[in-house]
């Protein structure tokens, strides 16, 4: 009588809770791995190309007998951040449906997204420091001037590397989460309301840029309002601002993802 339901032991409430915790953990881990894998693959290519441009352009300019006004890191300010932002949009769009269909909760999706984005942010932070260090060494050798306008203006190179790493890691994580939140907004509210939501969702990005004086927003600010507080004050304010931006982005993603419905397919 195989069709009859077996009267197996029903899991007691705490056993169910333990199974639920395990399920959430598995689900969040899968999202994290997916995000990390995408950043290793696509992000890896981005950095290979970005590094090639960063080396090739000053080489070609000096071969042609010219002089660079500023480093690629300055003239292409914010490119890694926007790349991370776009990947954030794509990752949510690609993974949220299969995640829910495979039995993952929306909460676990957000948790995994935040963890994956944080790892990607750390990697981008380290790569940004490496890129800047490379330029700092390459440009004098080629006879180009090199000066960093963006950033929090720490003079000591070692300390600057640490601060830049932290600021970039926080900002890139924020960009990824805002990208994902915008995609979630479209999923949840459709085209019109989703587009309206883009505007408030850009607030964390602006905050991250302004606080860390990085990206496009940082470039604008450094031209308009030169640094005037002490270096210590700038660093503290900058990192606190970046953490606040990240918290805002994560909160927005959580609020938007938790209500997403998968509409019946047509």
């Amino acid at each position: 009588m195989s069709a009859q339901s077996s009267v197996a032991d029903r899991p007691a409430a705490d056993e169910r809770a333990a199974l639920a915790r395990a399920a959430r953990r598995r689900a969040a881990r899968s999202v994290r791995r997916y995000v990390v894998a995408a950043f290793i693959l696509v992000g890896g290519w981005f950095w290979v190309v970005y590094a090639l441009v960063g080396v090739a352009v000053p080489l070609l300019v000096s071969r042609a007998g010219g002089v660079m006004d500023e480093g690629i890191s300055e003239s292409s300010a914010g490119t890694p951040r926007w790349f991370a932002f776009v990947l954030g949009i794509i990752l949510l769009a690609a993974a949220l449906t299969i995640h829910v269909a495979a039995g993952g909760t929306r909460g676990a999706f957000t948790a995994g997204m935040v963890r994956g984005a944080a790892r990607a942010g750390l990697a981008f932070g380290a790569l940004t420091v490496a890129f800047l260090t490379g330029e700092r060494l390459l440009y004098p050798a080629l006879g180009h001037p090199w000066e960093r306008q963006a950033g929090l203006g720490v003079d000591d190179p070692a300390l600057d590397a640490v601060v830049t790493f932290a600021a970039e890691a926080l900002s890139v994580t924020t960009y990824i989460l805002v990208g994902a939140a915008i995609a979630a907004g479209y999923r949840r509210f459709g085209v019109w309301s989703g587009t309206v939501l883009v505007v408030p969702l850009l607030v964390p990005l602006a905050l991250a840029d302004l606080a860390t004086r990085g990206g496009v927003g940082g470039l604008v600010l450094s031209n308009v309002a030169p640094l005037d507080t002490t270096a210590a004050g700038r660093v503290v304010l900058g990192l606190v601002g970046a953490v606040a931006a990240l918290a805002l982005a994560a909160g927005a993603l959580h609020l938007l993802v938790r209500g997403v419905r998968l509409r019946p397919s047509t």
Binding site: A17, L19, A20, A23, G104, T105, G107, A108, R258
Partner: peptide, 8 residues
């Protein structure tokens, strides 16, 4: 949003 049921 119930991981116990959705995973099953």
């Amino acid at each position: 949003e119930n991981a116990w049921t959705t995973s099953n």
